[in-house]
């Protein structure tokens, strides 16, 4: 187990390197530089600025500088937020995104899994219909439509919840962003759980367990739950990636000081180092999460052997 994790972590290094090269190349192909203001600046000033940030050296050397910084946890200075380094910006913003994302993921699992199982157990009943049609609706309504409507109803008209803002992650400020972010995933998880539970319930060993006279509760929790959860666990990787992306929009709608906002702002401002830093950080996060999910999978499914 330990060996496997180490192997996977080492295997992630070339991937990270490739991602860094890709982002670095992409950003440097981009027309326009960080100091292309509307007002032209004297050539000496520009040369000095370029020299300060090593922008006058060959690309390979620049990449070398960057790489050695990243290895030490230094993503360089932000070109636009001059008083901050990218590492500081990420350090400030990531806790917000993390809290948001983890809450959304937990809600997706806590609501989605039971809803899907109940729908499967009461197949073709009214309850099943309600769960399935609600989840289908959750899948087809874009977050950026749902969230503003929620803000209008619960924030502006009913005044139950704050309209926007983070307020150090106070609960009332979290409610709407987390619900809006998690809803599509609640829907997916419910549908997947329903499908897999139905399939598991059809299998022979469940019939055997029932034939032995085990109470339904035991059959469900002891025998059916684990295999029914397998597809959900393998969905966790893409779900985490999706929630990370989705939080870009959510942070924008609710004005939250998270990582996604820096990413979009950085991309629009051509803040090279900020965009690169955030992309690389996200990539590392996703790689790590994929490893965690793969390891979790083996706990649930003994047929899967770690190599």
């Amino acid at each position: 187990m330990f060996g496997y994790i180490v192997k996977r972590l080492l295997g992630a290094i070339p991937t990270m390197l490739l991602i860094m090269i890709a982002v670095f190349a992409l950003i440097h192909i981009a027309p326009g530089g960080p100091f292309d203001n509307k007002r032209p600046m004297p050539a000496e000033v520009r040369a000095n600025l370029n020299a300060t940030y090593h922008l006058d050296e060959p690309l390979l050397v620049q990449f070398g500088y960057y790489l050695s910084g990243v290895v030490q946890g230094d993503f360089g200075p932000s070109y636009k937020f001059k008083e901050f380094t990218v590492t500081e910006l990420i350090g400030q913003a990531f806790p917000v995104s993390l809290k948001l994302g983890i809450s959304a993921l937990i809600i997706a699992l806590l609501v989605g899994v039971p809803a899907g199982m109940v729908a499967a157990l009461k197949r073709d009943s009214l309850l099943d219909l309600v769960v399935m049609s609600t989840s289908m609706t959750g899948m087809v309504i874009p977050t950026f439509v749902l969230a503003p409507i929620m803000v209008m109803v619960f924030g502006v008209h009913l005044k139950w919840l704050p309209v926007a803002g983070w307020n150090h992650g106070a609960l009332p400020n979290m409610v709407m962003p987390v619900i809006a972010l998690s809803l599509p995933y609640v829907a997916y998880v419910a549908r997947m759980t329903r499908g897999s539970t139905l399939e598991v319930l059809r299998s022979n060993y469940i019939r055997t367990a029932q034939a032995k006279g085990l109470p339904m509760r035991l059959v469900l929790f002891r025998h059916a739950l684990k295999p029914a959860l397998l597809p959900v666990v393998s969905f966790l990787g893409p779900a985490i990636a999706g929630i990370v992306v989705g939080s870009v929009v959510i942070e924008r709608i609710f004005g939250l000081p998270g990582l996604g906002r820096y990413f979009v702002d950085g991309a629009i401002n051509r803040d090279y180092t900020l965009v690169m830093g955030v992309s690389i950080f996200y990539a590392a996060l996703l790689l790590l999460m994929n490893i965690v999910v793969d390891v979790a999978y083996t706990f649930l499914d003994p047929r899967v052997k770690l190599k």
Partner: peptide, 15 residues
Amino acid sequence: YSMPFMFFVIVLMVV
């Protein structure tokens, strides 16, 4: 798979 593609798309669009 392990790349955050949406971000690449955003960077591409900007570039």
